Computed example of a mutant assay.
Amino acid sequence: MRKTIRTYSFLAFGIALLLISCDKTQIFDAYHTFQDGWDKKNSVIFTFDQEVSKKPNNMFINIRSNNDYEFNNLFLITKLEQPSGLIKVDTLEYEMADLDGNMLGQGFSDIKESKLWYKENVKFPEKGKYKISISQAVRKTGKVKGVEKLKGITEIGFRIETSQVE
């Protein structure tokens, strides 16, 4: 019995490794985990080295959330800094639940992963270290002050994919 469990575990690990290594579109993929919600004061920062790109790339923000997330939407402020210091700021809104309050995204348990478009067909104009900062900017309806601690967001990720596979 133990030998069978080890065999299945080894087989599952091998299949997962194979699937990950077959991802030819991935350029960058990283996650940040929250222990007890996402504090309004804590921006999540990802840094990555990039060559000048002639091929277009797509950027995504990945959100893992659970049923403790009490809002239908998610508001984010992003700051993308180029090696020269040029900063591009965006305010983004994403739908996180359907009209019945069911969480959107992929997953079979109460944790759902949403792959959210950030920028499409981006070419990196400079070689060097890029930095993206992501902050949550959720507010309750009719309130000016933002939600101090956003519960239900377990992880946030940032991913860059090439949009052209050779």
Results as ranks from 00 to 15, higher is better:
residue 3 K to I: 15
residue 4 T to C: 01
residue 4 T to Y: 07
residue 18 L to C: 13
residue 18 L to Y: 14
residue 20 I to D: 01
residue 20 I to Q: 01
residue 21 S to E: 11
residue 22 C to L: 10
residue 22 C to M: 12
residue 23 D to V: 10
residue 23 D to N: 11
residue 28 F to M: 04
residue 28 F to Y: 15
residue 30 A to T: 04
residue 34 F to A: 07
residue 35 Q to G: 14
residue 36 D to S: 15
residue 38 W to H: 04
residue 41 K to V: 05
residue 42 N to H: 08
residue 42 N to L: 09
residue 42 N to E: 14
residue 47 T to G: 04
residue 48 F to C: 12
residue 48 F to I: 08
residue 49 D to E: 15
residue 53 S to R: 06
residue 53 S to C: 06
residue 55 K to W: 04
residue 57 N to D: 06
residue 58 N to E: 13
residue 59 M to P: 00
residue 63 I to E: 02
residue 64 R to V: 15
residue 70 E to C: 06
residue 73 N to M: 04
residue 75 F to Q: 09
residue 78 T to A: 07
residue 79 K to L: 01
residue 80 L to I: 13
residue 82 Q to I: 00
residue 82 Q to R: 10
residue 86 L to A: 11
residue 86 L to P: 00
residue 88 K to S: 12
residue 91 T to E: 13
residue 92 L to N: 12
residue 94 Y to W: 13
residue 96 M to N: 02
residue 97 A to I: 02
residue 97 A to T: 09
residue 98 D to R: 07
residue 98 D to P: 07
residue 104 L to G: 11
residue 105 G to R: 04
residue 105 G to P: 03
residue 106 Q to H: 05
residue 110 D to F: 09
residue 112 K to A: 07
residue 115 K to E: 11
residue 123 K to T: 12
residue 124 F to S: 02
residue 125 P to E: 06
residue 126 E to H: 05
residue 128 G to K: 04
residue 128 G to M: 03
residue 129 K to T: 11
residue 133 S to E: 15
residue 135 S to H: 07
residue 137 A to N: 13
residue 138 V to M: 15
residue 138 V to A: 06
residue 139 R to L: 05
residue 139 R to I: 09
residue 143 K to V: 06
residue 146 G to N: 09
residue 148 E to T: 13
residue 149 K to T: 14
residue 149 K to L: 08
residue 149 K to M: 03
residue 150 L to A: 04
residue 151 K to L: 09
residue 152 G to N: 07
residue 159 R to A: 10
residue 159 R to W: 02
residue 162 T to W: 09
residue 163 S to A: 15
residue 165 V to N: 13
